[in-house]
Amino acid sequence: MSDFMQFLSEFVILFLTTVFLENTVFARGFGLSRAIAMTRRPRSILVYGTLLTLLTLLGGIGCYLAGHLFPAIPAYGTPLVYLAVIAAIYLVIYGILTRRGSRFREEAKKYMPVATFNCAVMGGIFLALFNGYELWQFIAIGLGNGVGFVLATLLLLNADRALSRTEAPKAFAGFPLMLIYVGILAMVFYALVGHRLPF
């Protein structure tokens, strides 16, 4: 029982670290382009986020298994092999979504290509692969990546609305101000982890 509790606590800690402290958008900029683009489509954020979480999770599991089946993949071949795995998973999920269904499925079909092949999904998977993580760590990172991305996008959506109401100089209106805002948030997250700026 204590082993299980220890495993659970490690899983939750890794999940929360991926969501907050090592947030995919603010810590490394993965998926930032897409997060800013989704602020213009607020009603689709949850759909996109769900797809991203699902694909990072399944893609991570698939890539972990592929890494064990083909352990000697050279560095130059890793994108091709792992993207082929993710493309196969993508086609299976797309096939499931093509059956007529709810509005969610129709919207999910629309966002599937960009939700699958982006830096947020692959960044999390590559980091887990290059660090030699175990399967349960892939699952924790996959879930954390997706949830962290959704929370980051919601934060940016709120920021976009607030920044549009400010009287900023016209040169900074819109995207420049958003970038500076993201930079300040990234600095806050950096400090939250416990780093200090070297003086």
Partner: peptide
């Protein structure tokens, strides 16, 4: 650090 890249790019 990453945040410096975001801020510089904003300017």
């Amino acid at each position: 650090l990453p945040f410096a890249g975001f801020i510089l790019a904003g300017f």
